[in-house]
Amino acid sequence: MIVKRTPLHTRNISINGFKREDDLWEVEGVLQDTKGYPFSLDDRGVIEVGEYLHQMILTLVFDDTFTICDVRVQMHDTPYLDCSGAAPQYERLIGLKIKKGWMTEAKEVLGRTTSCTHLTEMLPALATAALQTVRGYKLNFEPNYASGSEERSTVRNTCHGFRDGGRAQRRLWPDAAE
């Protein structure tokens, strides 16, 4: 049975990964929220259907060790005028390393009331995109990367596909069978 639905809220998150000519890497996340009805905000007036409630960009620049070297935040559309005051806080991510468990440290340095919920929510997806960006590039353009211990330790037992004893493990790292 098909039930009629009325669209009320749309959140689009788009993430792109880049290799830079200075040998650094970049992941950029764009978050956009719209509503399916017009509504009014004290700080912005009427937000029409399709206009952005949130339109924010968070960019992480990192090196081969996944250490964050730079952070850029753009808050084009926010519901309140003071939301953009959270943008400078994200510079505190500089020096952190994207790795297992890094979100605990990221949330600690960002603080709850000094950061933006929406930007912080993008961080796990940006971390995954960072790994996919670097790993995909190295697998395709750096000989022997797939067989190396760095690659193995990065993805081993992180999901069903890369579990010990699975097809990927047996194909990529037959010597690692347990």
Score class of each variant (00 low, 15 high):
residue 30 V to I: 14
residue 30 V to M: 12
residue 30 V to K: 14
residue 30 V to Y: 12
residue 30 V to P: 01
residue 31 L to Y: 07
residue 31 L to I: 15
residue 31 L to C: 08
residue 31 L to V: 12
residue 31 L to E: 03
residue 31 L to K: 05
residue 31 L to R: 09
residue 32 Q to K: 14
residue 32 Q to N: 11
residue 32 Q to G: 02
residue 33 D to V: 00
residue 33 D to P: 02
residue 33 D to W: 02
residue 34 T to L: 08
residue 34 T to H: 01
residue 34 T to S: 10
residue 34 T to C: 06
residue 34 T to D: 05
residue 34 T to Y: 03
residue 34 T to Q: 07
residue 34 T to A: 04
residue 35 K to R: 15
residue 35 K to C: 04
residue 35 K to L: 02
residue 36 G to A: 08
residue 36 G to K: 00
residue 36 G to W: 04
residue 36 G to M: 06
residue 36 G to H: 01
residue 36 G to R: 06
residue 37 Y to C: 00
residue 37 Y to N: 00
residue 38 P to N: 02
residue 38 P to L: 04
residue 39 F to Q: 02
residue 39 F to G: 05
residue 39 F to P: 02
residue 39 F to W: 13
residue 39 F to R: 04
residue 39 F to N: 07
residue 39 F to Y: 15
residue 40 S to W: 15
residue 40 S to T: 13
residue 40 S to Q: 10
residue 40 S to A: 13
residue 40 S to H: 14
residue 41 L to N: 04
residue 41 L to K: 05
residue 42 D to N: 12
residue 42 D to H: 13
residue 42 D to W: 11
residue 43 D to L: 05
residue 43 D to F: 12
residue 43 D to K: 09
residue 44 R to N: 12
residue 44 R to M: 08
residue 44 R to C: 06
residue 45 G to S: 06
residue 45 G to V: 13
residue 45 G to P: 05
residue 46 V to G: 05
residue 46 V to H: 06
residue 46 V to F: 02
residue 48 E to A: 09
residue 50 G to P: 00
residue 50 G to R: 00
residue 51 E to A: 09
residue 52 Y to D: 11
residue 52 Y to K: 08
residue 53 L to D: 03
residue 53 L to T: 09
residue 54 H to R: 05
residue 54 H to W: 11
residue 55 Q to A: 10
residue 55 Q to L: 15
residue 55 Q to V: 10
residue 55 Q to E: 11
residue 56 M to A: 02
residue 56 M to T: 09
residue 57 I to G: 01
residue 57 I to F: 09
residue 57 I to R: 12
residue 58 L to S: 08
residue 58 L to I: 12
residue 58 L to A: 06
residue 59 T to F: 02
residue 59 T to A: 15
residue 59 T to R: 13
residue 60 L to T: 07
residue 60 L to I: 07
residue 60 L to H: 07
residue 61 V to A: 03
residue 62 F to P: 00
residue 62 F to G: 06
residue 63 D to M: 10
residue 65 T to W: 09
residue 65 T to M: 14
residue 65 T to N: 14
residue 65 T to L: 11
residue 65 T to G: 08
residue 66 F to K: 02
residue 66 F to N: 03
residue 68 I to E: 04
residue 69 C to L: 14
residue 70 D to R: 15
residue 70 D to K: 14
residue 70 D to H: 08
residue 71 V to W: 10
residue 72 R to Y: 13
residue 72 R to I: 09
residue 73 V to F: 10
residue 73 V to H: 12
residue 74 Q to V: 13
residue 74 Q to G: 11
residue 75 M to V: 03
residue 75 M to E: 06
residue 76 H to P: 01
residue 77 D to M: 03
residue 77 D to A: 11
residue 78 T to V: 14
residue 78 T to A: 08
